[in-house]
Design a binder for these strands. Structure first.
Length: 277
DNA sequence: CTGTGGTCCTGTATGC
DNA sequence: TGCATACAGGACCACA
């Protein structure tokens, strides 16, 4: 569910609370989110108990808690994963899957309605888990080079939206910000990468711009499925120009926004600003 | 290698 | 009131 601005909001919240915090106990309430651990839920709990967290890091939508010993707890929130930082007296909310007790007295709680996401221990992964090494840099990485990303996109014939959603090409962009970037750049989502010409740069610039604005607002939230570690929603939904605005007036030309199926999900566009070629 | 579609899950909204 | 269907901020995998 969360895209880069939401994951970054969560990462910052975790980093500010978890530095030098030790995990004193782990309770796995549902086995699925720890399915990738070879020794099952008990093995996962044993592997994490006693670890001291140094910080929280991120690449694209991949998030991990870097342990002081060089290993890491890798987190993929996917569609519905979230973290909460709560006092143990606060009742567990529905869909709580894993509870971490810490030496601060507070609990870190992993909640995931759909359980498409998961937690895993990455040996030696404190700096960059090998499981996330295939993920490209995101637009806010100091080493991000939009020109090389543009070159990759212009060499492909797949639809531009598929390409900017491909986390191996550029990371952090999901369905919301893809539609927002394409709206800002006035590009039709199914335009082949190789037909974009100089507009590739517009799309990439727009993606970074819109995600940066969303980050300042604490991310995009429509409901309780995205909240920060305090349980609060982000405020960017009101600023969206395309996503979720079916039949509402385009903020540039007043034409009703249309929703169309694409790649098994929904795409929103302005039929005048982003015409099909 | 490239592009596409199915799949993993649960919950909610909508229509018959 | 049921029941079926579609859809949801993601990403992996098999297949042509």
């Amino acid at each position: 569910m969360p895209e880069l601005p939401e994951v970054e909001t969560i990462r910052a919240g975790l980093a500010s609370r978890l530095a030098n915090v030790t995990v004193t106990g782990v309770e796995v309430l549902h086995p699925r989110p720890v399915r990738s651990h070879p020794c099952g839920p008990d093995g996962f709990a044993a592997a994490v108990t006693g670890r001291t967290i140094a910080t929280a890091r991120r690449r694209g939508k991949y998030l991990w808690l870097a342990f002081a010993d060089g290993d890491a707890l890798l987190v993929q929130l996917r569609m519905s994963g979230q973290f909460r930082w709560d006092d143990p007296s606060v009742p567990l909310q529905r869909h709580t899957r894993v509870v971490f007790d810490t030496d601060t007295g507070h609990q870190l709680r992993y909640i995931d309605q759909r359980m498409l996401g998961g937690l895993s221990v990455s040996v030696g992964g404190a700096d960059l888990p090998s499981e996330a090494a295939h993920v490209a840099l995101d637009p806010f990485d100091p080493s991000y080079d939009p020109r090389s990303v543009a070159a990759i996109i212009r060499a492909r014939q797949a639809p531009v939206k598929s390409l900017i959603l491909d986390q191996r090409i550029v990371s952090g962009i999901g369905n919301i910000y893809a539609d927002e970037a394409l709206w800002r750049a006035r590009v039709y989502y199914a335009t082949p990468g190789r037909d974009l010409g100089p507009r590739v740069v517009d799309v990439l610039d727009a993606a970074r711009e819109v995600m940066g604005e969303a980050l300042v607002r604490g991310g995009t939230s429509f409901d309780s499925l995205y909240v920060n570690v305090n349980g609060q929603s982000g405020y960017f939904a009101r600023d969206l120009d395309a996503y979720g605005r079916q039949d509402m007036a385009c903020r540039r030309c007043a034409t009703p926004i249309v929703r169309e199926p694409f790649g098994g999900r929904s795409s929103f566009r302005c039929p005048v600003c982003q015409p099909r070629p």
